[in-house]
Design a protein around this nucleic acid. Sequence first.
DNA 1: CTTAGGG
DNA 2: CCCTAAG
Length: 673
Amino acid sequence: MCAFDLLAATADNLLQEKQNATTSSDRLSENDGDGFVKEECLDANKPFKAEHSDEASCDRRYKHEFVKEKKPFKAELSDEGSSDRKRFCNISSQVYNQNRCSKEQLQHDNYGHSCIASIVTSSSCSERFAAETAVEGKGQNGMENLVRKVELGSSGCPDSSGCKIDGDVSKVKDKLLKFGKVPIDTGTELCCFEDPLDEKPLALISSCGNAKLSGYDDSMPQSSLSKGYDNVLVDSRDNDENFSDCAHPCTKIKSFGPIMFIDDRNIKRKLDSKYHEVAQESKRNTLSNSVLDGNVKPVYSSRKNYDKSQRSQMNIPFKKRKLFNCSSDTNSNGYSRRGDTSYSPENDTNHSVSCSSSGMSKGHGTSSLDHSALRSRDSHVKLRIKSFRVPELFIEIPETATIGSLKRTVMEAVTAVFGGGLHVGVILHGKKVRDDNKTLLQTGISHGNHLDALSFTLEANSSQNKSPACATDSLSVPSADMSQPLIVYPSSLGVTHQRASGFSNVLPEHQVTGLGSLVESDHDSAPSPINTSVEKKSKDSKELITVPEMGMEALVAIPVHQKSKRTEIVQRRIRRPFSVAEVEALVQAVEKLGTGRWRDVKLRAFDNAKHRTYVDLKDKWKTLVHTARISPQQRRGEPVPQELLDRVLTAHAYWSQQKTKQLLKHHSKPCLL
DNA sequence: CTTAGGG
DNA sequence: CCCTAAG
């Protein structure tokens, strides 16, 4: 297996790598005056959250713009386009769960001729791995520790002390084989799924742990992140403008591993339940931290014709808000918002949901989980989870896509993962707490104890498919297991133009080719256009047949025409459930503007939410009113805080009354006259 | 293009 | 969310 050979080679290089460590970090430090980057590197080298809960630099890192990349073996990798090389990258990125930071390098090493870039953030594996390690300690196998050593050792950072590889690579291989855990899984996956696309040059960017990429100018062509970088961390902190700039047609996101292909509804369902789990543990401020910090800064692009541009973007899903929602959201199942405020709806400007979440702006889509526990007076345990590690993601995106779209793509992938079947693990004193029925007190999580040893993990549901081999299939031909790609979003089929404000570096060819490959696998959240058209066609045909006057030519010609038309244009937008934050914004806007002024509502509260049309808002209001009227038990989906629903009813009643008053006036006036 | 409402 | 009538 080439993977193991590569692994072995990697191990060999680790030593050399380590020798260069000092130099590297020095260089890195220079890149950033205060040595931040260096710090970041070290930080990123913490696959084991439980053991690295101290992140004093956590916040700081987000104030800096950087992209981490790592090229373990530049020499070997110089042969671009070689599939071996790619494999090598994949493997090495697994082993090297570490990133060297250098924006410059990244920009310089631009292979720039590829069509597709694949990005893998593989942390789920190491994530799970970490958890298990923590639980079982050195138990049954030392392999995990060994691997860990490898990972740490590869960091090239002075901090990584445990980097003795002992040269016995074969041991590693064997153990990896034997236990088939993570690192190998991912490596295999990567190898597998790039094969089908081998003709196209691929850029694989794999980041173990954090999907963070920040500070990149969105105008920077994504091709900058190309081949040589098997490890790019991205902070998906983009603003709304970019956010709206829809994904590239060729953009595919797939999540491998346990969480794979779930349709939209399942996602939501799971997200809901999962969220509750989290909520119980952390009350709030959990997921929020991790993901969404985009959208925080509202961009008031004076888009008077938002609808126009919007239409073109409409087919692109942006689930950011969903995450959002997870975070800012709250109760309904008894988890009540504790008076805080993730958002500041008071502001009067064009506040959209996004900006209203300013409280989350500091959120970081980080990888490592960290928390601090505070004691409250009443024996409640207060936990604060600073961040979660994002489990493994696979992202495939054209190199010609913009950074902005990359960010969004990553964002969507992250969102999908969150909704796709994660559960929260609790680790206390390095041990995983498995008994869900124990009380916190029984477990030792009480306000009287030091809770430093408490940490949480996001873990993929074990029930899901773990087989890496399936990754191969899932890429091109969805297997039975993963017939539902988590996210595969073709952009709107009929649309070719990009918004002016967007960075449309996308070549038309790519759009076309991308569509071709995507349509096939797009039978998840959004119905395949083909299927739709077929349905419609048959329906139309029937209708046509019932028309006596219709001649045969017409019978034939019309359906054909309609088919092609619908195939290209008709595509139902994917469902994007409103987040609580969005609902909040909507309610607020309606309270002020009233029902019936949906365009104004849109402009006021959702101007930068391209995917929300005024019709959507109207519909949402409709459902909100309905939701508010039914019993909480009958409600589905993400729970909307009762407080909001009350406001909905109040506002609805008020404006209904206003309307009738208006009507009466108009009616009475003529009568009086 | 917007609204309003049914599907 | 979609579709469409109506203004």
